[in-house]
Design a protein around this nucleic acid. Sequence first.
DNA 1: TTGAAAGCGGTACCAC
DNA 2: GTGGTACCGCTTTCAA
Lengths: 329, 329
Amino acid sequence: MATIKDVAGAAGVSVATVSRVLNDNGYVHEETRTRVIAAMEKLNYYPNEVARSLYKRESRLIGLLLPDITNPFFPQLARGAEDELNREGYRLIFGNSDEELTKEREYLQTFKQNHVAGIIAATNYPDLEEYSGINHPVVFLDRTHEGAPSVTSDGYTGGKLAAEAIIHGKSRRITLLRGPVHLPTAQDRFHGALEVLKHAEVDFQVIETASFSFKDAQSMAKKLFATYPETDGVIASNDIQAAAVLHEALRRGKNVPDDIQMIGYDDIPQSELLFPPLSTIKQPAYDMGKEAAKLLLRIIKKQPLTETAIQMPVTYIRRKTTRKEDHDA
Amino acid sequence: MATIKDVAGAAGVSVATVSRVLNDNGYVHEETRTRVIAAMEKLNYYPNEVARSLYKRESRLIGLLLPDITNPFFPQLARGAEDELNREGYRLIFGNSDEELTKEREYLQTFKQNHVAGIIAATNYPDLEEYSGINHPVVFLDRTHEGAPSVTSDGYTGGKLAAEAIIHGKSRRITLLRGPVHLPTAQDRFHGALEVLKHAEVDFQVIETASFSFKDAQSMAKKLFATYPETDGVIASNDIQAAAVLHEALRRGKNVPDDIQMIGYDDIPQSELLFPPLSTIKQPAYDMGKEAAKLLLRIIKKQPLTETAIQMPVTYIRRKTTRKEDHDA
DNA sequence: TTGAAAGCGGTACCAC
DNA sequence: GTGGTACCGCTTTCAA
């Protein structure tokens, strides 16, 4: 691996000059520049990022903290962030926290130790002192924290849209699944849906659900139909849950959406693979990742910020598990 | 951020001594050690990884190159690798190549510039000179390259298992989907299945498929049923494809698996969410990632290698799109 | 058992 | 325009 010294030697100049052409700052004679560039190419030189980071006290690395990349909602977020960051030459150090405090702390620690330029955190612990006491820019993703920069989507409206879709499709005995109580995102959509149901002329009941895992959702679905066999509409807390409910409904020989409607939340890529394809509320995951990256980049470059808490719109995706909107309703 | 100098000052020793207790090498008096440790704690000191990497010419970072984290097969691989690497204190720099040469080169470049300790590459271009001319350890994942270290799964056997499952379930007019010709993994399973079909007393035909995308798979599925309406068994090249075929079959009012069987490949997490749950050949993705990490770690530590091209077993997962094996067959 | 000092590969200030 | 050099924070000889 050639170093800046090798290049300087080959070009017959000092390292300072090489550094100048490298960073394109300061004066350097056109002819010298040519010689230096030739030397760089001949030696196949590229600068050592580690040395750079040491001096600058800042690397071209961004820390990305996710709960679990294995959860189908997150790859999109990651992709969106990565694509945007790459355009500016930043790379990702990436970690899954599993929502465990210890892991989260460990990752934050290594992010700092590697002098990341910034952090994007989809965390459940935004109030950790590690965040407040940090001197790296942080953007929260899919979570908010007081005045801190963040990118989220409008869960309350999303919940309302979901409930409205089910009601317009004329379900009259609706089951609303409340997601994990400790997840603000789940509670936002829950409250949005609740609000609509309360003011509609329908029967409805709420089922508490502890987790988003498919396994738990499966047993929950069984219980749902056992307890409320007359349910003709289900508002799920996310798409995985909706899939489990869909499963159980089909297994029981129900016709979807004629006998029972259901709607998910998130619009993970798999939702359209289900049969029938799942109606759902789409969070623009890829764009959320992208926006978070953009926001972070602006903060890193100390550009003026117009808005610091970005909320993205959600949309109702009607596929085949809800009935056509009935305008006479 | 406290530096080693601050600690040295606070403990009344030189930086050399602090370094010694930090790395637990060389002689240091028990009492001195205690003093130094106390100082580190008081100052909340943790070493600057960048400075370390510069001197050592090696960081605690591992480059992970994936085609696309958004493809549901890869998050598992990533997770497996990460979990294993973490146990040894390594972190991941992570990039999606989209199977584009340029992106792949760019990532490899930054991996080197950041002095990664090693690279795990799920690449389609293992013969790139960037790999042969590299002085970082590389483990290929889901791909092989001559004698290079790699972790794959046994695709040929997988293909055979898939075909056998369909045949044992008594399909007699089988359609075999050939995956993208440029993907060795897809061709392995294809040839395995082909081998079995050739020696069985069944009718079968092959359909070429250009990509793994759901959209392409959808139109392919329509064509399949239009061209071969009498097909009573489909061997897909992966689960996404199988999902598309399943969709189309159900849309046409076919009963699965009574009228037609189908089997996928990979066992992505979503396959059991389908209705009916998809029978498939499982690649142990998480374990493959884990093995790749283990292998890489061994290479990094210059430990003796027993095997350098690890092939993991695949298994037939019978769910509801294949019929019970018929032992009279 | 400890410290001084030379690097690791860059950047940027200051002189010339 | 260009070069000399101190410095980023750490590790590792070498000498004491």
